[in-house]
Amino acid sequence: MLHTVNKSPFERNALDSCLRLAAPGSAILLIEDGVYAALKGTAQTAKVEAAAETHEVYVLGPDLKARGIEESRIIGGVKIVDYGGFVDLAVAKGTVNSWL
C-alpha cells in the first residue's frame, strides 16, 4: 500500500495518523504541504526518521522545488521522487490511501 500525506505536520495531524496506521513495510509519500515533514532539524524530524526505519518514505521533488526546499535539507532516509516516480509507486503498491 502507498500512503500519501498532503498536509503540513505543523498544522494538521494527517502525518501522525498515517504513521500510527500505516503497516510496517508500506510506502509513505509526502506531497504538497506534506513535504515540510521531510525537513531536517524540525520538531517533526525524529518521528519521520523513525518511520523511515520501518517504512519506505518518499517526498515529491516538484513540491520541494516549488517551496524552495533544497535537497540538502531533506532527512537522509527519505527518497526524492518526481511525478513519474509517484505513478510508479502507485502502480507498484496497488492500493493508495490519501491522508487529507
Binding site: R20, L21, A23, T95, N97, S98, W99
Partner: peptide, 18 residues
C-alpha cells in the same frame, strides 16, 4: 486499537479517506 485497524486497512483493495 490502532494496531488492529492498521491490519484491517492493509487488507483492503480500495481505501477512500476523507
Amino acid at each position: 486499537p490502532a494496531a488492529e485497524l492498521s491490519k484491517l486497512m492493509a487488507e483492503q483493495d480500495v481505501l477512500i479517506t476523507g
